[in-house]
Amino acid sequence: MIRGWWEGVTRRMAEEIDVEIKHLTVQTGTKTVINDVSFSLYKGEVLALVGESGSGKTMTALSVLDLLPPELERVRGEIFFNGRNIFDMGREEIRKIRGKEISMVFQEPFTALNPVMNIGTQLSETLIAHGCFKPTPSKVHGPWSIVPAFAKASEGRHGPIMSDQLKHLLSTVKLLDNVLTAYPHELSGGMRQRVMIAMALSCGPSVLILDEPTTALDVSIQKEILDLIKNIQKERALSVLFITHDLSIVNLIADRVCVMRQGKLIEIGMKEKVLNAPEHEYTKMLLGCIPRLGDTRERLPCF
């Protein structure tokens, strides 16, 4: 009986895990970029991956999508998604997962968006690639629409991209329809990041990886974006891997925290525990080096 109960527990635990990283080790030449990192992302939780630049947090996230740069070599380790090892999958199989089941928002919204494509076209790209795009035939405006050739050309420019599906996507990130025909340079940093989030959500993924989504933004815009992410995450019960270097953001958004340094995982635990009673000296330093309001310290601790 006990054995049956135990199997039930382990099965339930296995079901609740979305992404499981086991003993991941990645090297470039002789330098170890990720050193024996293991952790799991549970269903519906926000796990923050915290560390300085160069600590390997972005590379860990990229490995989940099997998108490591060619100069990096995976020496050891597995990453399981829905019980299957990502590194055992074929090229086409993993492409079906990228952007559809697991999607990612990159740090710099300006370099991540294509400057010569309008937002609508960029948003529809992911949808078309995964066969989820539902173009709605839209009305062609203007007197030239009487001439069929002009009407067709005009539809080609603005028609399909003004589809209801894309409008709905933009409304989930609280942007107006006219953004669809805009180009990235016409948008502010916060709006660009909203577009990136809309793009990542377009195919209804179950796992979202956010790589420093607010680092390039002002503090007040950062708050808006974090609130937006938190609301969407709750609504859709997404599992989120949130990469940041700032522990004060972790407090706003995360359920669990995982601290990395020089490619090693040094501390993992619930947010309340890691922020209030950190075990590792490095975590204490990361907490201490953030200036607080009403700070009476003359100098900040730093390594």
């Binding site: 300085e52 522990l247 080096c289 953030i290």
Partner: peptide, 14 residues
Amino acid sequence: LDVSIQAGILNLLK
């Protein structure tokens, strides 16, 4: 800059 690098630069400026 990262928060930890930021702390070093702020100390340096002071």
